[in-house]
Design a protein around this nucleic acid. Sequence first.
DNA 1: CTGAAAGCGCTTACAG
DNA 2: CTGAAAGCGCTTACAG
Lengths: 338, 338
Amino acid sequence: MTRRPTIIDVAREAGVSKSTVSLVLQNSASVRDETRKQVRAAMARIGYVYNRSAANMRSSNAGLVGLVINDLRNPFFTEFATSLQMALADKGYSAVIANTDEDPGLQAQVVGSMIEHGVSALILCPAYGETRATFDAIARAGIPAMQMLRRVDDRLDLFPLTAPDYARGSGEATRHLLAGGARQVAFVGGLEGRAVTEERQDGYLSALAEAGMTPVMLTGQSTREFGRETARRLAETHPQVDAAVCFNDLVALGMLSGFQEVGRDVGQGFRLVGFDDISEAAQCFPTLTSVRCDIARIGAQAAETVIDWLDKGTPPPGETRTPVSLVVRQSSGGDGRS
Amino acid sequence: MTRRPTIIDVAREAGVSKSTVSLVLQNSASVRDETRKQVRAAMARIGYVYNRSAANMRSSNAGLVGLVINDLRNPFFTEFATSLQMALADKGYSAVIANTDEDPGLQAQVVGSMIEHGVSALILCPAYGETRATFDAIARAGIPAMQMLRRVDDRLDLFPLTAPDYARGSGEATRHLLAGGARQVAFVGGLEGRAVTEERQDGYLSALAEAGMTPVMLTGQSTREFGRETARRLAETHPQVDAAVCFNDLVALGMLSGFQEVGRDVGQGFRLVGFDDISEAAQCFPTLTSVRCDIARIGAQAAETVIDWLDKGTPPPGETRTPVSLVVRQSSGGDGRS
DNA sequence: CTGAAAGCGCTTACAG
DNA sequence: CTGAAAGCGCTTACAG
């Protein structure tokens, strides 16, 4: 295997100096068009490939963004990471992606190695827990970092947060169920003590308070399993509950399948709303009413924001709330099926 | 923001030469334990972080592996990418991940930028199409690359393939349905002309041939939508079909919801088998019989294989087929529910 | 618009 | 076991 050509080889081949080649590489305006073409042609001829590590040593914009995700197997986060990565690629950035599985220890490790790799910025859907030292390390390295979807570190000036307006979403969902005639609405899923859980519960609680109704909170893991189990036993444990706002769509889809299993009708018999509006919500049966966060847009937006931050050097606002909207489908008895 | 400390700063702080620091960084055996400790302590004191870009310029093991995935939103590939990434992280490697959305053009671009970033190896679930030039570029760069799950480039000596034994899986699935009393088994989903589709169809076709039965192939996109539409109209278009092997679980889950919509019973009335055994297969209702590929293991395995290749310099065998197994659940009428 | 020179932070022989 | 020197492939002022 012969060594990879460098800009010196390109310079020789094109008959210019290596500075000129470097300038061409950076699309500098101070190179004549004709020269530029010759250089590009020379590159193609000898199969030159740009060495970013070398470039990075001098100028340090690696063109690398680190993406740290708490649960990459959850379709909501998959969609986020994917749309973000693709938007970054569109702007010429690559993404180092790591799943932390909600483990703050693992998170510390992957953040550390991303910093070593010289990422220009970090985008985190952070794990909960002991994360202070990790965020401190990011700050010390002077790397722009955004908290997405979850508020874990309170220093929003350093680590600005972008998240959907969760409280509004669950509020709307709850009001929708009440307007449809629900007598007793439960909130299902969500682990206690987490910011996102609290926000989603808050909207639900205020809507119930407005209507003068008592809340029923069935907290737990936000998984299909938990939803399924809850639905299976709901008739015994909470016979009066005839509607639910779920922490997320996974819980709602789990409930859907649990109800199917025990033969309970969803739509008229039991009114169900999910949260996140993952694509499956439109594909299941009955189709699932859900709070849309437009996560793909949030992902693409995050890419733009972070690149802007990198270019301009000024951080985005400390907190950005993105709009949510209720997408009414069959599971809440709200459309064609009634 | 003060500049990041370098090994020179560490050397000064620890009172040794910078070579010694470098040796410590590489865990070289030729440094006294006491010295090592002093150096490590100095690093911690001044907040040193390793600069891999600089290291990479000399030695070029970037500790970076590129992961190119055709469809990261598909839970099967998500699981693959996630388990692979986590296994890599476990060995001290980071992963640059890109979704190509089945677009060979995008694939060419992301592979190009991964090469620029100096990835030590590439793992591809490649997009179909015009990919020759992309694979050529990888070969020219001399980067170890594995094809996973799909055979797209025929140069298996250069780009070894690891994939489940698809034909065996669909064969078993088909025989299972026939043994359960199915009269007419269809194969649903899979785009024509693709290697994976052909392999999965092959197992089905041979099993039917053994039994002397005629195949019914309903090819199409391997999505929930396609499955759902197919199920909805199946009674009209193919009234005699009473069982199906699906190209993947998404199609099968789509059929499940389509059948629910039109009120057709799955399990006894219609026997259904999926492929891939994504985690949802165990969570839906009725639970889905599926061909398990153990994709998480394949992902972790791929990480080991590629690191081994990197360490030893010898490529794995040109073709590795991993075992599959049929997981019988309710949808094929095969368990407790009958 | 182009060329010669220095330097980014490491690793790698090579002496000691 | 440790130190001095060269060099990896670029970019960046600085002259011309």
